[in-house]
Computed example of a mutant assay.
Amino acid sequence: MKRKICVVTGTRAEYGLLYWLIKRLYEDTNVDLQIIATGMHLSPEFGLTVKQIEQDGFKIDEKLEMLLSSDTPTAIAKSIGLGVITFSDALSRLNPDIMVVLGDRFEIFSAAQAAMILRIPIAHIHGGELTEGLIDESIRHSITKMSQIHFTATNEYRERVIQMGEQPNTVYNVGTLGLEGIKNIKLLSKEKLSESINFKLNKYFLVTLHPTTLESGTAEWQIKSLLKVLDTFPKHQVIFTKTNADTDGRIINQCIEEYVLENSTRCCVFDSLGQLRYLSAIQHCEAVIGNSSSGLLEVPFLRKPTVNIGIRQGGRLKAKSVIDSSFKFTELKDSINKAISTNFNERLKHIPMVYGEGNTSKSILRILKKVELEGITIKKFYDL
């Protein structure tokens, strides 16, 4: 009998990480793949990226609307509640053997709450990590406690999940999914990438800035500080990708759009580049700037420098290609200059990888197929 495995995805970035796992599940004759798309995937404001899932040849079993048209804390809290209601209905219909979720976003939090109450086993990818400037920090650890199967990106993160009381034999260090896209996709040349985005690329930065959701009222001055620093690099073009559906994200997006209009010969902005174009943009850029987790996960694998700004990614393991900076003008400018310097880039050729070597989806698939499910939802706390 086929094992029904349901994968939940709510954002473009998360789907890019999950793609190769979804593909392997889809191609496995012993698995009945189910897909739930929700959150930003269904929003025209964020690129309606549900279309990308369908273009990749995957059938979406449920499309769950849960986002309110606001990014205030109240709206996010209400979206979580709406998500629990809609996921409860959808998971009751699908009745999967295992639900697979990744990360720490509020959409996934809703899915995990519903699955826990319905006694559906949860497999959680990327547990044990820290993002100390975000509500995602608490959400990630909460999902860990609601899950029965854990896939971590490093051994240190595995130990942290065990420290939270999870049984060691349920916690698997498999590396990060993000590296598989780099290994398995033929990336675009700079010329082909230029054609694809309709923007002639020379030397450029790739910039993504998300709100720091545990701070209040900082989004506007943070993005304006970054834009002011980018003005001091007039010979560098800038590709911006917009923020997620987080509190104050619209403020950042509006500032970026206004900046691009004022600097249209030098800058461009996208709701979503998609996995192929985004990874290709990393490959050819001078530096990745902002506070996206991809700057810590995928970018080092491509031997490119990351300027990681602020506290959003605080507490995460970082390769030596990552330069931490505050939003202060001089420090941020100096950090970018360091990132594009010849000496720093020479050292990138020899940095060790922190998050595995890119065979993660095979390991996850193997475990999902063989793990014993009888009585799995009855958890015992593991005391150190």
Rank of each mutant, 00 (worst) to 15 (best):
T11I: 10
T11L: 11
L21F: 05
L21C: 10
L21P: 06
L25R: 10
D28V: 11
V31G: 11
G39I: 12
G39S: 07
K51A: 12
G57R: 05
K63M: 14
E65Q: 12
S69F: 00
D71F: 09
S79K: 08
I80D: 00
L82G: 02
L82C: 00
T86Q: 14
D89G: 02
S92F: 12
L94H: 12
N95H: 14
D97V: 12
M99D: 00
G103D: 00
D104I: 03
R105H: 02
Q113F: 06
A114Y: 08
M116V: 11
R119K: 15
E129V: 07
E132I: 09
L134P: 00
D136P: 01
I139T: 08
I139F: 04
Q148R: 12
T152E: 12
R158K: 15
E166S: 11
G175W: 14
G178H: 03
N184G: 05
N184K: 15
I185K: 08
K190G: 11
K192T: 05
S194D: 06
Y204P: 01
G217Q: 03
F240D: 05
T243H: 04
A245S: 13
T247H: 03
R250S: 13
T265N: 14
C267W: 03
S272N: 15
S272T: 14
P300W: 08
R303E: 06
G310H: 04
S321W: 06
V322F: 05
I323R: 00
T330N: 14
I336K: 02
S341F: 09
F344R: 07
H350C: 11
H350P: 01
P352L: 11
S363T: 13
L365A: 07
L368R: 10
K370P: 00
L373M: 10
T377G: 02
Y382K: 09
L384H: 13
